[in-house]
């Protein structure tokens, strides 16, 4: 067994696929955090999005009322709505009610964890799979050796996730909305004095964050794994939160962090597959250990939202 067995094209391809839910969730969390809201409930929202998306597709396919692409898009829509509603709930608790964000986020997580399981057991019962987003084959490109497998043979949501990275960077850095987000996260008093509604901006970012977390969940249940089960995400939402710190609140580096993490994850799977002489538990731990180490060394950056987790109150 050599390095050739480990670093295969399929490992790189699966690294890209595995990065999808992290990129969606972490980009959404980046928006929320840049405006000063730490949403720890991402994982719970992902679970609800995953279930919502799965259930919609499942119903559509069982009833056969919708043609295939429409049923899948319905699943995406449901995931976005469910995620957006949970983001809205998080915004209500932390912006309007000014609750401690760390605690309310955990509340959102547990709520999503419990409710998604309850709904699953009541409505579906046993794990069932659905026909998820199919892989896209591009003419010519897909047939390129190695590169074709790595880059040009994924499902639609994978490409959407990667397309969202530069779009998010553009929104944050080049638009008036992005300027408001950055200002509200750094100095809400100043933003308020300039006529920017701190609450409105934070509601918007937290809701967008929720929608993207919902989509992240759906990318698992109707595009990558194509089924739903209890605690499907297994903590991926928490990794996404860590990735935002790791990436220094910048979409490009956050996505790079997601890639690094999912690459280690893909390697770990590959090592298990080829049966290398490493206890598989170590391999499973590896990505998390690497994340923790990376976080320790991630230094304070200029982009760090100084008002993160601090509810804004207009006062003296």
């Amino acid at each position: 067994m050599g390095l050739d067995d480990i670093f295969t094209a399929s490992v790189f391809a699966s690294a890209i696929r595995l990065a999808t839910p992290y990129i969606f969730a972490a980009l959404g969390e980046t928006f929320a955090q840049r405006s000063g809201v730490l949403n720890l409930g991402v994982d719970g929202i992902m679970l609800m999005g995953a279930f919502g998306g799965f259930y919609a597709v499942h119903l559509a396919q069982e009833a056969g009322v919708l043609a295939e692409p429409l049923g899948l898009l319905l699943g995406v829509l449901v995931a976005l709505i469910v995620g957006g509603l949970m983001g809205l709930a998080m915004a209500f608790v932390s912006v309007t009610l000014k609750a401690k964000q760390g605690i309310s986020g955990i509340g959102v997580y547990l709520f999503g964890l419990g409710l998604s399981e309850l709904l699953f057991q009541q409505l579906v019962g046993t794990p069932k799979s659905v026909a998820g987003f199919p892989r896209i084959s591009f003419p010519v490109l897909t047939d390129i050796p190695i590169l074709g497998e790595i880059f040009f043979h994924h499902n639609l949501l994978v490409y959407v996730a990667f397309a969202l990275v530069p779009i998010s960077a553009f929104v944050l850095n080049r638009t008036t909305f992005g300027l408001m987000i950055r200002a509200v996260g750094q100095n809400p008093e100043a933003a308020d004095a300039m006529g920017v509604s701190v609450a409105r901006v934070r509601y918007a970012t937290t809701t967008i964050g929720g929608m993207l977390a919902g989509l992240a969940g759906a990318s698992l249940s109707i595009a990558l794994i194509n089924l739903f089960q209890q605690n499907l995400t297994a903590g991926q939402g928490f990794i996404a939160v860590a990735l935002v710190y790791f990436g220094g609140w910048r979409p490009l580096t956050v996505a790079a962090g997601a890639m690094l993490f999912s690459f280690v994850n893909a390697l770990q799977l590959q090592i298990k597959v080829i049966g290398a002489d490493i206890p598989s538990e170590f391999a499973v731990m590896a990505p998390y250990v690497i994340t923790i180490i990376a976080l320790v060394f991630a230094t304070k950056r200029q982009e760090q939202p100084t008002a993160l987790t601090k509810p804004y109150e207009r006062g003296e």
Binding site: T176, G178, A190, E303
Partner: peptide
């Protein structure tokens, strides 16, 4: 001062104002 330290002078002034380019700064 009601300024955002990490933003530039121009960004601080543009904050909360209508842009001549719509949603783009």
């Amino acid at each position: 001062f009601m300024l955002v330290p990490s933003l530039t002078v121009a960004e601080n002034i543009a904050l909360g104002m209508k842009s001549s380019r719509g949603f783009q700064l």
